[in-house]
Design a protein around this nucleic acid. Structure first.
Lengths: 331, 331
DNA sequence: GTGAAAGCGCTAACAC
DNA sequence: GTGTTAGCGCTTTCAC
C-alpha cells in the first residue's frame, strides 16, 4: 500500500502537521523531532504525493507549452531552454503540439487551463487574439512566445524582425540585385506579417520593383518551401529571402538538387534557427539572419514564472533582437 | 471565485453525485435531469478541476517522457508522434530533458514518479539498468524507448541495429573499401554498443583489417563528430560510418568544409533521423540507414498506455527495423 | 433514477 | 515547539 503522511507521523510519534512542516520547512521544528521524522521517512520510503499536494495548495508546479511543431528544431530549442529555466525553479513542463492547427490549439487551451497547469506559454497559430483570449480563464497567467498579436493584452516574448530583413534587402540592392523575392511562413502569423512588411518597406526605399508576385507564403512546415521557390525562380528572381529556419534548410538542399548554387547563381538570405556556423552548408555563401533562440526560450520561462508568482506584474512585451550576418563577414 | 461541482448541483437542483455522473457518463441519468445539469454547467461556465479529479481517482492522465535531448530532431519527432498517440487517448505529456546527464535523469525519475504521472517513457542515458530501476517504485509503469539494457525487466521499444550496419559494411567491402572507420555515439548506450558490435562482426567476416583505432565514439551531441572524423581521416580511412543522425548531418557539412566530397573522396554511411530524401544534401551520394522514427514514438505511446491500463500485461521488447538504403538505389 | 456522505493525502489555521 | 482538525473538489459506495 501507499505510504502516507500519517504513517510517517505515527512511526515518528508526532503529528502530521509536524511531518508536513519538517518536509516543507514551513515552521520551526526542533532538531530532535526533525531527526525522528527524517528517520521515519527513510524507513518507510515515504514520498509526498504530488497530486494531493497540488490539490490542496492549488499550485501544480507545472507550466504548459502550446507549440506549433515540436519536431522543428526551432521550437525544440526553445522548449529546451524554457525547460531548463523552469526545472531550476522546481517546475515541470507539459507539451502540447498543434501542428499549426487552430482547432488543436483550442483543444489544448481548454484542457491545459482546466486545473492542469499554473501558467501557459503559447506560440500561437491563431489568426486573432480574441480567439485565443476567449479560451483563457480571466486572470490565468499566459505568455505569448515568438508569435504576437497587435491587440494582445498579455505579455509576450518575441524576436525583432524589421531591422535584419530591411538591412538584408538593402545590401542585396547594393550588390546590384533587382528582383528580390521573399518566402514567408503561414500568412496569418505575426512573424510572417512583420517580415513581409519589412521587406516591402525596404524594396520601396531601395527603389526595387514592387511586385506582389515576388511575395510568397508557405505554411511554416518544411515541405512548403519548394513550390514557392519554383515560382520565384520562374519569375526571374536574382535574390531570395527565406523567412523561416526550417524552410531555409530545405531551400538550400532543394536548390542544390536543381543545380543552383547560392551566391553564384542566386543570392540567398536565410533565417537560421541557431548559429552552427562552420558546420552548416554554404554558411559562407548565404546571408544569414540568426535568431536568439535559446534566449527566447529562457526569457519565456522567466516571464511565465514571474506572472505565475505575481499575476499583477506589469504586462511586458519583450522583443529580442536577431542578428543580421552577411556572408563573408565574420562575427 | 472558482465554480465547483456543488455550485452546479445547487443551481440544477440535484445532488453532486448526479452532476458527477452526468459529466462522466458513469450511471444512468434521465434526459430531463441531464438537461438541467448541462444547462447549469453552461450557465456557470463550470469546468471540472483536473487536480481534484486526479487526486480523487489516482489517475493523472499524464505520461512523463525523459529525453536526452529535446532539441535533437530525432527525439523531437519521437515526442511528436508519442504525443499524438497519447492525446488521442486523453493523456498529456510531461517532458524532462537530461542532456545525457545521469544525474539529471535521476532527478527527473524521482520527481516524475512521485505522483505526477501515470507512467513513464524513458530514453535513458544510464550506464546500467539497476541504476534506473532503483529509482522506480515497484509496479510503476515504464517503457524504455530507443535505448535498452541487456538485463532490463521492463518493456522496451527500440530499433534494430545489426542488420543495416552489417550490410553496409559488406557493401563497402564489395566496393573495394578497406579501411572502414566508425563513429558511434555515447559509448555506454545500447545503441552505440550494438552498432559497434555489428560493425566488428562485419569487418571480421569481410576480411577487413580489425583495428581498434578505427572505432571512435562521440557523445551523441552534435559537436562531437568533427574530432572523431579528423582522427579517422588521419588514420587513412576510405569509408566512414556515422551512427547517429545529428552527428551525421554535422559530418556532411564538416567534410564539405574540408573540401572532402562524399563518394568521390570518401564513402559515407550515415544514419538519418528521418527520410527527407530529395531535400537532403548529398542524399544521392551517401549510403543511408533510415530509422523508423515516427513508428518508434507511436509504438512507445501505445505501449505505455497499455501498461498503464493493464500493468500486468506481458513485458514485450519491441524491435522495429531500420532500413538500409545504399545510395543510387531507389525505394 | 437519485441523494447523502465518506473520504482521497495533504496543508494551514488555530489552539495550547 | 507541537498537536488538532477542517477542509481543498471530486468520485463512489451505499441507501432509498
Amino acid at each position: 500500500m501507499k505510504v502516507t503522511i500519517s504513517d510517517v507521523a505515527r512511526l515518528a510519534g508526532v503529528s502530521t502537521a509536524t511531518v508536513s512542516h519538517t518536509i516543507n520547512n514551513t515552521r520551526y521544528v526542533s532538531g530532535e523531532t526533525r531527526e525522528k521524522v527524517c528517520q521515519a521517512i527513510r524507513q518507510l520510503g515515504y514520498t509526498p504525493d504530488a497530486s494531493a499536494r497540488s490539490f490542496r495548495t492549488g499550485k501544480k508546479k507545472t507550466i504548459g507549452f502550446i507549440v506549433p511543431d515540436i519536431s522543428n528544431k526551432f521550437f525544440g530549442t526553445i522548449i529546451e531552454s524554457a525547460e531548463n529555466e523552469l526545472s531550476a525553479q522546481g517546475y515541470h513542463l507539459i507539451i502540447a503540439n498543434t501542428k499549426e492547427s487552430m482547432e488543436r490549439e483550442e483543444t489544448s487551451l481548454r484542457l491545459l487551463t482546466a486545473g492542469l497547469v499554473d501558467g501557459l506559454l503559447v506560440a500561437s497559430t491563431m489568426d486573432s487574439f480574441s480567439r485565443l483570449e476567449a479560451l483563457i480563464p480571466a486572470g490565468f497567467p499566459v505568455v505569448l512566445v515568438d508569435r504576437t498579436f497587435e491587440d494582445q493584452t498579455c505579455p509576450s516574448v518575441s524576436v525583432s524582425n524589421f531591422q535584419p530583413i530591411y538591412r538584408s534587402v538593402c545590401r542585396l540592392a547594393a550588390r546590384g540585385k533587382r528582383r528580390v523575392g521573399i518566402v514567408g511562413g503561414l500568412p496569418r502569423l505575426s512573424t510572417t506579417k512583420e517580415r513581409i512588411a519589412a521587406y516591402r518597406a525596404a524594396v520601396a526605399d531601395c527603389g526595387l520593383p514592387q511586385e506582389e508576385g515576388l511575395i510568397l507564403c508557405g505554411d511554416s512546415m518544411e515541405n512548403s518551401a519548394p513550390p514557392c521557390l519554383d515560382q520565384l525562380l520562374e519569375r526571374g528572381c536574382d535574390a531570395i529571402l527565406v523567412c523561416q529556419g526550417l524552410m531555409a534548410s530545405v531551400t538550400i538542399a532543394y536548390l542544390r538538387g536543381k543545380g543552383i548554387q547560392p551566391r553564384r547563381d542566386l543570392d540567398l538570405v536565410s533565417f537560421v534557427d541557431y548559429d552552427t556556423r562552420a558546420y552548416e552548408f554554404y554558411y559562407d555563401q548565404v546571408d544569414r539572419i540568426v535568431q536568439p533562440v535559446e534566449k527566447l526560450g529562457k526569457t519565456a520561462g522567466e516571464q511565465i514564472l514571474l506572472r505565475v508568482e505575481r499575476p499583477d506584474a506589469p504586462v511586458a512585451e519583450r522583443v529580442l533582437t536577431s542578428v543580421y550576418r552577411p556572408c563573408g563577414e565574420e562575427e
